[in-house]
């Protein structure tokens, strides 16, 4: 055993020195390399996870807003369509009312015009009868070469006025 140890060059001092060296190496690497590197990797992983979570939330928020926007637009479209329909109906009703009133007014105007025309015609016919009766009486005076008294003149004219319409028709 002693020969083997000697042949391999095993020495307690060298062995312990190498163990101490290795311990120092582990300590230095753990303190200055492994822990900081693992920490920065963990931090990065956390940051990425948080960012992904945030991105997911933003996506969800965007989807929600899009859905709300679509719903609002759809509602606005429906309201606009309803409003348009109501406006059409109201305008149609208004048009009918206005037309009815216009027709009534036109009919009233026509009736009034007809009445006025009738009245004017009647007054013209009366005036014509008067003038014609007077002319007939004057003509009769000239034909008969005599002058009627005022009372006769008036009596003839009244009689003529009464009979003229039947005579002219």
């Amino acid at each position: 055993m002693g020969d083997l140890v000697h042949a391999l060059g095993i020495q307690w001092s060298a062995l312990i020195a190498q163990m101490v060296n290795f311990s120092i190496l582990i300590f230095v690497l753990a303190k200055f390399v492994y822990k900081p590197v693992l920490k920065v990797i963990d931090d990065r992983r956390d940051t990425i996870a948080a960012s992904l979570e945030k991105a997911k939330e933003i996506d969800q928020h965007k989807e929600r807003i899009d859905a709300e926007r679509v719903a609002i637009l759809r509602k606005a479209d429906e309201e606009a369509a309803a409003l348009l329909e109501r406006a059409k109906l109201e305008s149609e009703a208004l048009r009918v009312d206005v037309e009815k009133v216009a027709r009534a007014q036109a009919a009233q105007l026509v009736t009034k015009g007809m009445e006025q025309l009738e009245h004017e015609r009647a007054s013209m016919v009366r005036e014509l009868q008067n003038k014609l009766a007077h002319a007939i009486v004057l003509s009769a005076e000239k034909i008969l070469r005599r002058e009627f008294s005022k009372e006769d003149q008036a009596s003839f004219e009244d009689e003529l006025k009464q009979n003229l319409p039947s005579m002219l028709s």
């Binding site: 200055f32 390399v33 920490k39 920065v40």
Partner: peptide, 20 residues
């Protein structure tokens, strides 16, 4: 060990950043 210490020193000096 010197090589490894040098590497550790270099990385320690440059610092550990989130954007490596």
């Amino acid at each position: 060990m010197g090589v490894l210490f040098l590497l550790a020193f270099c990385i320690r000096r440059t610092g550990y950043r989130l954007m490596p």
